[in-house]
């Protein structure tokens, strides 16, 4: 199997908590490498948050996908540096999140000790007249917002 094809297999694994995007679109897939002699595949991933409870499921899903593609002994390595940023979410990932009613993050910036809250557009009607309901949401990476224009609540993936 070619290196590109191998990466495609891993890249197609979906995030268990944001099921509309793949781990590649989310920016947590860092590397897929095949040992030229043993043929053993090593996948490198990085967590969104240190305590993200989805990591075990993601590791299992990667191993399952590779096993189905003929690589039953794949190894999944987790790295922490450089730290994941929401800036790594791809354009297609952002579009899919928005289509699923999850407002994608704005630019994360760096070195700010106190995060600024920028305007978040409603993923349902596109209005900018929105407000934060809760600084934390259904997962560690999201906050709960609502739209004052269409009145719909929505999740917002926080810039990190």
């Amino acid at each position: 199997m070619s290196a590109d094809r191998l990466r495609d297999v891993v890249a197609a694994v979906v995030d268990p908590e944001l099921r509309v995007v793949t781990i590649e679109e989310l920016g947590i897939l860092r590397d897929v490498a095949e040992d030229p002699t043993s043929g053993r595949v090593t996948v490198t991933i990085t967590p969104t948050y240190t305590g993200c409870p989805a990591m075990d499921v993601i590791r299992a899903d990667i191993r399952r996908a590779l096993a189905a593609a003929g690589h039953p002994d794949a190894e999944v390595v987790t790295v922490y540096a450089p730290a994941w940023s929401t800036d790594w979410i791809s354009a297609s990932g952002r579009a899919k999140l928005a289509a699923a009613g999850i407002a994608p993050p704005g630019p994360a910036g760096s070195g700010r000790s106190v995060p600024l809250t920028l305007t978040v557009r409603c993923p349902h009607c596109g209005a900018a007249d929105t407000e934060q309901v809760s600084r934390f949401g259904s997962t560690a990476c999201k906050a709960l917002w609502r739209c004052r224009a269409c009145r719909e609540p929505f999740d917002h993936l926080r810039a990190l």
């Binding site: 948050y49 240190t50 790295v79 922490y80 540096a81 450089p82 730290a83 994941w84 700010r112 000790s113 106190v114 995060p115 600084r135 926080r158 990190l160």
Partner: peptide
């Protein structure tokens, strides 16, 4: 210490949000 530095730089971003929450 690269391993400790990696953990710290990861946790630093999360703690900044905790601080903001407590500040509010």
């Amino acid at each position: 210490d690269e391993r400790l530095a990696a953990i710290a730089s990861k946790a630093r971003k999360e703690v900044a949000y905790h601080l903001d929450h407590a500040r509010l």
